[in-house]
Design a protein around this nucleic acid. Structure first.
Lengths: 231, 231
DNA sequence: ATTACTAGTAGACGAGTAA
DNA sequence: TTTACTCGTCTACTAGTAA
């Protein structure tokens, strides 16, 4: 997104435009953005065009509201700041082992995914994945992780079903190397899929309901096989 | 600050330029900023000129580092995002009553300050202020408060001494209306000055070392007597 | 490789103004 | 009052290139 859009959206958010329609004239927005009424009016039109804003235009005063897409863009910048001021390269997530092979497990163990894991992460995952339900208080950190560059695992079609692109991140669970896998653009999904060279339940002697700590490694990736969370 | 500077600084911060010199070529920065090498080079020169960046230019690769001023600018934006996504209009600070009249108390009880309190906050503070040492874990919230608009209490000169501009915010301590007073641009100062119409120690039966909870009201101010934390 | 100059251009901005 | 058009200016960018 163009930075000027983020700037305008941020100021509109500060005026209360995130959850409600807020009456902001182009003159007022111009003051907030330190520009003329004319330019602010144009900016609003651009934001509407980009679907970052919706408008309820009355006879006297327009009322504007930031769309979900717009809020997502702001969160992306917010997450950048969190990376700068809050996080290091290692983010720890707490969670509980969830029952074995859910829907996600079926997806991830597809050969097309597994081959890519080997090519990019340099290990062949043990058949089957470990599901970890992330603790509520760590969900926002998971959001930050999702906004970071990770290993792209491309999607594919098979038997008329669509398997979407997923992003993998190197991680450690109890000092064992593994990777976490999250579907691209999914919001507030609290289930992690872990892939590992070994059979994690057996190797770590863990089972359903056990608390685990997953340390995700967010250090910069080597080559061009990475992607930013949302392009 | 021009938004384009904040944008560039943010990307440099993400490349690790906050606490250390980091080797970033103008080409690399251009990629991060989605602009040409030439423009990125120019942007670096502008940031150097604005004292947001310092540079250690070697023969091959320049190494850059964000200055304290630059970090402050980034924190300002970060605090805006925190206001958007974390805070409501009321921010609660925890702290302990500290010993009576420190240096700050001497300052604040000056007549020139007191008259302005009456004009702007519409109450005349009881002679003397209450010092509250803010708990370490709430210091970052205090930083956010400082970045918000508050009531400007102008500084003055007296007997060759300079009394700086301070910012006041409406607050409540144990449901009693009061105001907190912070000097303009002071970093990581953990001492709050509270002013109130009543004698707080007597009215609330509190004394040194007692834990108190101060709820600061950050709702938008009425007129033109407010200022943003740092202009 | 770098960094950064100059020159030319596209687009962002504000003034004037209409509705 | 609003919003938003046209149009002229000027800035911010890129390409070419030097060091």
């Amino acid at each position: 997104m163009d930075e000027k859009f983020a700037f305008a959206l941020r100021k509109i958010a500060l005026l209360g435009g995130i959850n409600n329609y807020v009456a902001v004239s182009s003159r007022e927005l111009g003051i907030a953005l330190d520009m003329s009424q004319q330019s602010a009016s144009k900016r609003i039109l651009e934001l509407l065009d980009e679907k970052y804003l919706i408008r309820d235009i009355g006879a006297r005063r327009q009322r504007i509201k930031i769309t979900e897409t717009g809020v997502d863009e702001l969160k992306k910048e917010y997450n950048e700041y969190r990376r700068i001021f809050e996080l290091t390269n290692n983010v720890t997530l707490h969670g509980k082992i969830a029952s074995g092979m859910g829907e996600g497990g079926y997806y991830i163990t597809q050969k097309q995914y597994m081959d890519q894991f080997f090519n990019k992460l340099r290990f062949r995952p043990f058949e089957g994945t470990l599901n970890v339900k992330v603790a509520k208080e760590d969900l926002d950190r998971l959001e930050v992780i999702k906004s970071m560059p990770g290993y792209i695992i491309d999607g594919f079609e098979k038997d008329g079903r669509t398997f979407g692109r997923v992003i993998a991140y190197r991680a450690k669970i109890h000092n064992l190397d593994c990777a976490i896998v999250v579907p691209e653009r999914s919001h507030y999904e609290d289930m992690l899929e872990l892939v590992c060279k070994f059979h994690l339940r057996r190797t770590l002697s863990i089972g359903d309901g056990d608390n685990v700590e997953v340390v995700v490694d967010l250090s910069p990736l080597s080559s061009e096989d990475h992607v930013t969370g949302v392009p």
